[in-house]
Design a protein around this nucleic acid. Sequence first.
DNA 1: CGGTTAGATTGATGAACTTCGATATAGAAA
DNA 2: TTTCTATATCGAAGTTCATCAATCTAACCG
Lengths: 127, 127
Amino acid sequence: MYVHNGCMNSGRTLELTPVDAATDACCEPSGQPTIDTYEAQLRASVFKALADPNRLRLLSIVKGSEGGEACVCDLTEPLSLGQPTVSHHLKILVDAGLLHREKRGTWAYYSLVPGAIERTTGLLESL
Amino acid sequence: MYVHNGCMNSGRTLELTPVDAATDACCEPSGQPTIDTYEAQLRASVFKALADPNRLRLLSIVKGSEGGEACVCDLTEPLSLGQPTVSHHLKILVDAGLLHREKRGTWAYYSLVPGAIERTTGLLESL
DNA sequence: CGGTTAGATTGATGAACTTCGATATAGAAA
DNA sequence: TTTCTATATCGAAGTTCATCAATCTAACCG
């Protein structure tokens, strides 16, 4: 005999009738509040930026670089990727709010946005 | 006049000749150690599991559920997704080491793997 | 001015991903 | 056994993504 806290409502409407509540009933609508669709999309967009090995290495190299910044030419070679591809990945990291871009002369320097990592871990801890 | 710490080696070979070292030279190979390709792939696979809004909501709902666990039927309705799709997302979260699956009777209960969130934030902080 | 160089943008290609409907499996009840 | 139910798996369709070659832009130099 299996104990089950409910779950007989596959394909019923949202309101809970007394009958439903009395039966073997189902699906406690959860005790704690959960993130809504919009929040989920916002957070997923950040994790999407982190969901690529080359982008993680970019963050790692920038973080470990002297002065906390690196230009594209510092990043192309260790990744064995073409310059357009590296630029593309960097743009994704900038758009996600993880990297900061500063142009000095012909060079573009990338650095970690202060607090970005902490803010991102917060997105996980507050799920 | 712009100060630049180097970067004239676009399209040269790997070894650094004395000439290269003497010139305006480039690309300090970075001061700190960075994660290697394999580590980057491992970490990216976890973030890939988090890079979908519906999977973030699954984690959120499971975390907020009474008893810390939820079955598939608890999860299908709030996501407005078909049951096969929810099962598919849950499998990805289990494979990433974020969710634990336990079958009791006909039902499958999913719960957060203890310490999984903390371990994941560590993947970011130790970049 | 023209020439050179760092970096960004565009367009195309192939791979990976999300979703669904249909089907399969496994357990419980009759 | 047969039937029903919860979940998993399969196969296909449509979308998104990573990568590259080619091109464009902007800044420097002569």
